[in-house]
Amino acid sequence: MPALILASKSTARRAVLDGAGVAYEAASPGVDEDAVKVEMLAAGAGPAAIAEALAERKALAVSAVRPGLVIGADQTLDLDGRLYDKAEDLAAAGERLALLRGRTHRLHSAVVVARDGAPVWRTLETAVLTMRDFSDEFLDDYLATEGTHALGSVGCYRLEGPGAQLFSRIEGDYFSILGLPLLGLLDFLRNEGVLAA
């Protein structure tokens, strides 16, 4: 059975694989994500293309030095075609959520699997999320409850936690929203003999 490595230290992605019963090893990809984003934005790339490129670079960085199958993943938040990064602190998280309030945004979640330094499988899934027009009081309470957990995702929410209360409508795959499109990945891993068919 080939080794399976997740090129990420993301607790959310690890939780998705753990929950699905997938055995893997996590490794830090060491990719300068900010530099990649600056380079790609300067070239006119959009948020979806940036998610795909980052997922690929992470997978290739680890695959170049480790045998087996390497999963690289990334997620970007797209509001009206503009890319948003994770908030740096709770004040910025409050500003982000106020910006998203009452509006629809997209989450682009990309996965690339590499072997021997080359991509062998990829997917990109986009979820469309509409936040309800919540009150300032709700926002303050939400941030007080979530604390630094709100800084762990680009949208400042965990759908698997109190962040579910922020939304009026969600279209898309649940696992993709968590940052790891899972079902297609599981099919690929079964086909590769990593998981039982």
Rank of each mutant, 00 (worst) to 15 (best):
P47I: 13
A48K: 10
A48G: 11
A48R: 12
I50N: 06
I50Y: 06
E52T: 12
E52K: 08
L54N: 07
L54P: 08
E56Q: 12
R57G: 06
K58V: 07
K58Q: 13
A59S: 08
A61F: 08
A64P: 03
R66K: 09
R66W: 03
P67G: 09
G68S: 10
L69H: 08
L69D: 02
L69I: 07
V70D: 12
G72M: 11
D74C: 14
D80F: 01
D80T: 09
G81Y: 03
L83R: 05
L83N: 08
L83S: 11
L83M: 12
L83Q: 13
K86G: 09
K86E: 04
A87E: 05
A87Q: 07
D89I: 01
D89P: 03
L90E: 00
A91L: 00
A93L: 02
A93I: 00
L99V: 02
L100E: 10
R101P: 01
R103C: 03
R103V: 07
T104D: 09
T104I: 11
T104A: 14
H105V: 10
H105P: 09
L107I: 03
H108F: 04
S109H: 08
S109Y: 06
A110M: 02
A114M: 08
A114L: 05
R115T: 12
R115G: 14
G117K: 05
A118L: 12
V120H: 04
V120F: 04
R122Y: 02
R122Q: 14
E125P: 00
T126L: 09
T126Y: 07
L129F: 03
S135C: 13
S135G: 10
E137D: 15
D140F: 00
D140M: 01
D141S: 12
Y142R: 09
L143D: 01
T145W: 10
T145V: 08
E146Q: 10
G147P: 04
G147C: 09
G147V: 09
G147M: 08
T148K: 15
A150Y: 08
L151Y: 10
G152S: 14
S153H: 04
V154M: 07
V154I: 11
V154L: 11
G155P: 06
Y157S: 06
R158H: 15
R158C: 02
G161K: 13
G163I: 05
Q165W: 13
F167Y: 15
